[in-house]
Write a protein that binds this DNA or RNA. Structure first.
Length: 432
RNA sequence: GGAGAGGUGGGUGAGUGGCUGAAACCAGUCCCCUGCUAAGGGACCGUACAGUUUAUAGCUGUACCGAGGGUUCGAAUCCCUCCCUCUCCGCCA
């Protein structure tokens, strides 16, 4: 959520920034609602004040043994007026609330302006795409020769499309990748390992911004009622990790807080029918190691650089060629003010594909969550900043390894960094 | 799942319809006194929102005692629903 003051005091400038990311703010509607809210709120509060004053005088009169009937008669009308005012105010506030909830974060200064992913700007490339002296296969075909390592037919039988069953060495490699990432972040990058629920309530989803706008991207255990009851499967560990800070006030000296978790992620992928239907690239369920940071506002931009570096470190240790792009205003996620995507080289697709997305959410989530910090000299607590990034998507890392480490004979080399996690296995051979 | 007991400010914990936004104690901040190994006195000490304002200062008001409804002139206090915690029983990995 944006700071309401930005909209009240600087609406034109704010609307211009939102336009840069493709969001058209209905300024007239907002102004009209805001005007109405002001009037009604003042009116309601005045009525409440009157009621409170009179009620107190009734109390005093009663205690003094006086006749309270005349006073009661006086107050009679007040109730009806008050509830009418309250009702009208509620309505306006709900409309305003809905409007606020639907507004994305403002892009940070320096984020390139653009419409969609074609306008993203490459920051760097790391290593060269490998050249192969044989026809490269994609991960689906590679895995097919490795003892049915990836079994999409079985998953379709068990569940449906966009799921996978992994077997044998591939399943183990998948596990090894996640363990390796988690160890790297906890031992080398200073993250605190956390195990979190995979089902969350609607408060948490509001907190990180999935609700109210993006509910259709999630799997819900029951239809979300008006009350928002019913748990939902997490689309990313960002949700539970970040919401740890919800409704909390931290001591500034305890920040930054850096957390990491390995969880499955569940996404309905509504609206992506027909895209990436082959293989592991786009699944309803995939594993991810997530990093989340809670930081002081003045540190968040630097923290984004570091957090992105932590994700890059994984790719570098795995010796996977990648490039880093900064997302343009039009391609950023709802709550982000600046995002770096890391894209790994996939030889079979002859292109870079997203494997990590690292974002500074500024105070956008913190405001929704009321996640704050306090310095000793501060009179009032202030909103902290939240960041999150994949470090990395495990399934896509598996894809990248299979494709980049494939050999002419159909075998797949295990990246050196993963050999200990594979208990010494250096090569995954095709079935005999 | 069954039975019972609870959820109050940073912590402990009073408060069963009106002068309680909330006693007391602890922790914390500031000031004073004293002077020698530790103590005494005093003040302050929740959050959000709105109005006013150059101000996220001050002032005024409103709301908040797990959440949401209800009763009432008036609710932390009474009623209903839900959530959570604890104890016992059942079940279970």
């Amino acid at each position: 959520m944006l700071d309401p003051r930005l909209l009240r005091n600087n609406i034109d400038e704010t609307a211009a920034k939102l336009k840069a990311r493709g969001f058209i703010l209905d300024v007239d509607t907002f102004k009209a609602l805001e005007e109405k809210r002001k009037t009604l709120q003042v009116q309601t509060q005045e009525l409440q004040n009157e009621r409170n004053v009179r009620s107190k005088s009734i109390g005093r009169a009663k205690a003094a043994g006086e006749d309270i009937q005349p006073l009661l008669a006086e107050v009679d009308e007040l109730g009806a007026k008050l509830s009418a005012a309250k009702g009208a105010l509620d309505e306006v506030q709900t409309s305003l609330e809905n409007l606020y909830q639907g507004i994305p974060n403002l892009p940070a200064d320096g984020v390139p302006e653009g419409k969609d992913e074609d306008d993203n700007v490459e920051v760097l490339t790391w290593s060269e795409p490998k050249s192969f002296d044989f026809d490269v296969k994609d991960h689906v075909d590679i895995a097919a020769t490795l003892d049915s390592g990836l079994d999409f037919e079985m998953a379709a039988k068990l569940t449906g499309s966009r799921f996978v069953v992994m077997n044998g060495a591939i399943a183990k490699l998948h596990r090894a990748i996640a363990q390796f990432m988690l160890d790297c972040h906890t031992q080398e990058h200073g993250y605190h390992e956390v195990y979190v629920p995979y089902l969350v309530n609607s408060d948490s989803l509001y907190g990180t911004g999935q609700l109210p706008k993006f509910g259709e991207d999630l799997f819900h255990t029951q239809p979300a009622t008006e009350e928002g009851q019913g748990l939902s499967l997490i689309p990313t560990a960002e949700v539970p990790l970040t919401n740890i800070a919800r409704d909390s006030i931290f001591n500034a000296k305890d920040l930054p807080i850096k957390m990491t978790a390995h969880t499955p992620c569940f996404r309905s992928e509504a609206g992506s029918y027909g895209r990436d239907t082959r293989g592991l690239i786009r699944q309803h369920q995939f594993d991810k190691v997530e990093m989340v940071q809670l930081v002081l506002p003045e540190d968040s931009m630097q923290a984004l650089e570091e957090l992105t570096g932590h994700a890059e470190a994984i790719l570098q240790k795995l010796e996977l060629p990648y490039r880093k792009v900064v997302l343009c205003t039009g391609d950023m996620g709802f709550g982000a003010c600046k995002t770096y995507d890391l894209e790994v080289w996939l030889p079979a697709q002859n292109t870079y594909r997203e494997i990590s997305s690292c974002s500074n959410m500024w105070d956008f989530q913190a405001r929704r969550m009321q996640a704050r910090y306090r310095k000793p000299e501060m009179k009032k607590p202030d909103l902290l900043h939240t960041l999150n990034g994949s470090g990395l998507a495990v399934g896509r890392t598996l894809v990248a390894i299979l494709e980049n480490y494939q050999q002419a004979d159909g075998s797949v080399k295990v990246p050196t960094a993963l050999v200990p996690y594979m208990h010494g296995v250096e090569l995954i051979r095709p079935k005999a």
